[in-house]
């Protein structure tokens, strides 16, 4: 299993990096830490490349490499089990250009397999390109996506599950909030949530929201199945059934001490573009970390 973790800077990405490494360890997944830097216009590329190659001769490396270096130092602390990583030194000369990106593969051992990647360009395009190079199960990204449409673009265009580590504070005791309905994606989100809950010993709650007072068979059946699946793995679960507007209820219920896990919508992409979807609206409105499972 392979996860992709997008970082933006040493100043803001610390919690995302730690959370990502923790989740990757929980799944024994390989982690590709990607920094996407700004790309200057094509007219400037020639002189810029010339300048950068000359700077490298003076041991002044490509912008963005300092962010990878920071991530490398952090990972050494986060993954103490990885002895090879612990003794390794960051050497920019080991960064190789490959398929329009710069890649540094670090020493790997079971439990903390890491690769560092530097890309330049527009965030969604670059993450999508990176995800298409391998079979990634999850993309982990920080929560500073203030731009309009970012929630839609992340969910719609990235071909993997997405964890947005918005406002994540690793010192805080979180509860997992599994949003359960009759969709196909609910099953996968329960499996995902169970794995994290088991490793991190977090409490699990399931929430099923109906627009009317009556909960159909599909909804109650899905909630029952979710409970059974979690209890089968010895994970205690508390279940909630509420009525109201689903997105508003999810956001209100999650408060500031939950991590939301929900399935991605299977609606028509065009419909999602114009009218949104429950995951898109929840991601736009909530302030807590959220995992959307595809």
């Amino acid at each position: 299993m392979k996860f992709l973790l997008a970082i933006s800077s040493s100043k803001y990405s610390g919690p995302t990096l730690r959370a990502g490494a923790m989740i990757a360890q929980a799944f024994d997944a390989e982690l590709n830490v990607v920094y996407v830097g700004a790309k200057l216009k094509g007219l400037q590329e020639g002189p810029l490349d010339l300048s950068r190659e000359n700077l490298a001769k003076w041991n002044i490396y490509h912008p963005g490499i300092e962010v990878l270096k920071w991530a490398f130092q952090e990972l050494k602390e986060i993954c103490p089990a990885n002895d090879e990583l612990k003794s390794a030194e960051f050497n920019p000369e080991h960064i190789k250009e490959d398929q329009n990106r710069y890649k540094l593969i670090l020493p790997t051992t079971k439990g903390c397999k890491v690769q560092l990647t530097l890309r330049e360009g527009e965030l969604i395009q670059e993450l999508r390109d990176e995800l298409q190079l391998d079979d990634y199960a999850l993309t982990i990204i920080g929560g500073s996506q203030g731009k309009r449409h970012m929630a839609h673009d992340l969910i719609q265009y990235l071909p993997s599950s997405i964890f947005v580590a918005r406002g994540l504070d690793l010192k805080k005791k979180y509860k997992l909030l599994l949003l359960v309905d009759d969709s196909e994606a609910t099953k996968r989100s329960v499996t995902f949530g169970a794995e994290i809950a088991k490793t991190e010993h977090w409490e699990v709650r399931t929430l099923t929201v109906s627009k009317t007072k009556r909960f159909g068979r599909g909804y109650s059946g899905a909630a029952k199945k979710a409970k059974a699946a979690l209890e089968k793995r010895d994970i205690p679960v508390e279940q909630f059934f509420l009525t109201g507007d689903p997105v508003t209820t999810f956001v209100d219920f999650s408060g500031d001490d939950h991590i939301i896990i929900m399935g991605a919508s299977t609606a028509n992409p065009l419909k999602k573009l114009f009218f949104g979807s429950k995951p898109i609206k929840t991601l736009e409105r909530s302030t807590v970390p959220i995992l959307i499972v595809k």
Partner: peptide, 17 residues
């Protein structure tokens, strides 16, 4: 200008560093 900037940048940045 691009030749000069490419040559002078390392000198400037090294001094700053």
């Amino acid at each position: 200008e691009h030749t000069v900037a490419a040559m002078m940048m390392p000198v400037g940045l090294t001094l700053v560093r």
